[in-house]
């Protein structure tokens, strides 16, 4: 599963990052690195770009880059009442 597969409100742990993309490296510099917990905040109209939240900050990225982040879902927005 990748970051691109999360639904708004889902939280997940970042497992492995494919660094062969300058956009991905930029995201890592902004703090999106292995072992942190992230939350899918918003998906723009049309399904792209995405907004990912972590440690009180947010970044935007496109699906193309999001697919390079392998994740494990922790919490699904649809399974809990208050996300």
């Amino acid at each position: 599963m990748t970051l691109a597969d999360l639904a708004p409100g889902d939280t997940a742990k970042l497992d492995k990052i494919d660094t062969r993309d300058p956009g991905v490296i930029r995201l890592m510099i902004l703090g999106l690195v292995e072992d942190i917990t992230v939350r899918m905040e918003n998906i723009a109209i049309g399904g792209d770009p995405l907004e990912i939240g972590f440690f009180g900050s947010s970044v935007s990225l496109r699906k193309e880059q999001a697919r390079r982040f392998k994740v494990t879902r922790i919490d699904s927005a649809s399974s809990t009442l208050n996300s």
Binding site: G23, R26, S58, V59, S60, R62
Partner: peptide, 11 residues
């Protein structure tokens, strides 16, 4: 190359 949109979004 296609631009990426990796940037911080301020609150």
């Amino acid at each position: 190359p296609k631009p990426h949109f990796a940037q911080a979004l301020p609150e």
